[in-house]
Nucleic acid binder design. Structure first.
Lengths: 205, 205
DNA sequence: CTGGTAATCAAATAGGTATTTGATTATAGA
DNA sequence: TCTATAATCAAATACCTATTTGATTACCAG
């Protein structure tokens, strides 16, 4: 056996997809290299040809996979001339559909990221990305407040609230459920906007 | 050495607290029995005296620790004669302050629960509890809708939205931050209520 | 005092699995 | 065709850490 004909060789990308799916099912720790390999008809050792640094490198690649794509699109929306409301709707949709469109990565993002947080470079890169993401959201809310279309709120907390709600979608969403990612996004965005319009009254008893 | 004087012997409870903190720092898998033991000045083997089933039993105990207390209180609120609004405020506060009051357990709850989900009994117990919790929240929202004080919404989704936002608090909250658990709960509850009052208009373009 | 028991320790044991190694073969380019 | 390289495999290796074991000591009840 050994090398298979060209049509059967697997790419990094193939492995990433397989890995994401295995991580999703079992979580990082219970996912064996062998499991990942099996998914693409390789043996565990062969994975090291594609990912010399091993399992962690694979996880990292899986996580990166999902993130940058969304980030770029979000920046675009921010820079657009849309109303804050519309911007919010769009970024919420971007985030949620990205999660629901790749549930395996989404779950890894939530559950496995901490595995890597003791590698300084990784932690930095992750923190930087997350902060940028949060900032993007804050910018939209703040813009709405400044323009008077949203009530003043604790922007930081509000953003954490919505990101929590959104990230959690990656935990419970199932592709065969009743709602599509877009459905979920639409409804949630509407609620966020309602909250942003009706606040500031029932706070102090 | 061997047995230490009475004042220095550790209790199950001591170990649980230590374990929760170690799980919080490192996650279940990277937390060694030795780490937990060190925290209470024991050796790893000694933990088996208190928890014969070992590491999993400890995790399980840690998770149980946090849950039942809140659940009972939530039921009480449900059964009370308060307005739906007030009920919602109170259960949100119960949940969030319970998370922020024991951040180690909260994080374990979010991140480590899945470790145990392949033990059928555990999975069942967990699912049952979670469903009951969700149902309690749904009951409040539904009551508000029925009484006409909340706009009609997809109750199931709404509850998932708020639970996501709330659970996520366990991920980012730090006791030395600017906001107390109660602060967070008050603001979030207010937003949820705003959303419940102002919905149903901007859904269909 | 004198057992008996509870709490502990130090030192194996044991199992799992990530990673390494050395050989093997297909393919592409000279 | 011949050779270098890429992709693969099977079979070690290596390590880590949960768990077990057998001895040791403190405390309490009688």
């Amino acid at each position: 056996m050994a090398r298979k004909p060209a049509e059967q060789t697997v790419s990094r990308e193939d492995i990433l997809i397989a890995a994401a799916s295995v991580f999703h099912e079992k979580g990082y720790h219970r996912a064996k290299m062998e499991d990942i390999a099996a998914e693409v008809n390789l043996t565990a050792g062969s994975l090291y040809h594609h990912f010399p640094y091993g399992k962690q490198e694979i996880l990292l690649a899986v996580l990166n996979e999902g993130v940058d794509a969304v980030a770029a699109q979000v920046e675009e929306v921010i820079a657009s001339g849309l109303s804050p409301e519309e911007k919010l709707r769009q970024v919420v949709a971007l985030h949620i559909t990205s999660l629901t469109g790749n549930i395996a990565i989404a779950a890894a993002m939530v559950f496995e990221i901490r595995t890597m947080l003791d590698i300084p470079e990784v932690k930095e890169a992750y923190t930087a990305r997350r902060d940028r993401f949060e900032k993007d959201f804050r910018k939209i809310i703040q813009e709405g407040i400044d323009k008077g279309v949203f009530c003043p709120v604790d922007v930081k907390l509000f953003v954490r609230m919505i990101l929590g709600a959104q990230n959690w979608v990656g935990v419970w969403y199932r592709p065969d459920g009743a709602l599509s990612g877009q459905d979920i996004a639409d409804q949630m965005a509407a609620w966020f906007i309602s909250a942003l319009k009706g606040s500031a009254n029932e706070l102090q008893d």
